[in-house]
């Protein structure tokens, strides 16, 4: 095997490892904002390494340039998407979980608040129907 091929396989394997770290982070971390951290950074680094390894394997031609184009696009947009989602959650009223609290304490509060809000609205609708 020529050395370029071995280098590309090593880089692809490193990228697959970082993608695995991102997946484990999504199910293991205690809070929505912490999970955003895992998916925006680990996944982006893993994708960068895998696509760079594939570009090394391909050699310098149009396809490797296109691969680098995909790499640049995803590196620019993946953290932006995760940040937009985190901003939406913050505006919606999801509170971060602080140290010493159980997992997903803020999320449980938000779910309870939304359920209570829905019950109130249903009661108001029933009262309006009875009044009319």
């Amino acid at each position: 095997m020529d050395p370029l091929r071995i280098i590309s396989m090593l880089v692809v394997a490193a990228g697959a490892f970082f993608l695995l770290v991102g997946s484990v982070g999504i199910i293991r971390l205690p809070d929505f904002y912490a999970r955003t951290h895992a998916t925006s950074k680990s996944d982006t680094l893993g994708l960068m390494l895998v696509l760079a390894g594939l570009a090394i394997y391909e050699g310098f031609d149009l396809n490797s340039v296109k691969l680098l184009l995909v790499l640049v696009f995803v590196v620019l947009t993946n953290p932006v998407g995760a940040h937009a989602l985190a901003l939406a959650a913050q505006k919606f009223g999801l509170r971060p979980t602080f140290a010493g609290e159980p997992r997903d304490a803020g999320a449980a509060e938000l779910v309870d608040a939304v359920a209570a809000n829905q019950e109130e609205e249903e009661e108001e609708e029933e009262e309006e129907e009875e009044g009319s």
Binding site: G15, L19, G22, S23, I26, F32, R35, T36, T39, D43, T44, G46, L47, V50, L51, V70, V74, N78, G81, A82, L85, A88, A89, F92, L94, D104, A107, A108, L110, V111
Partner: peptide
């Protein structure tokens, strides 16, 4: 637990499907 967690999971699946 919340909708945002589900959306985050869907985004992560999309990124890995790209690879």
């Amino acid at each position: 637990p919340t909708l945002f967690d589900r959306l985050l999971g869907v985004g992560a699946i999309g990124t890995k499907t790209l690879v």
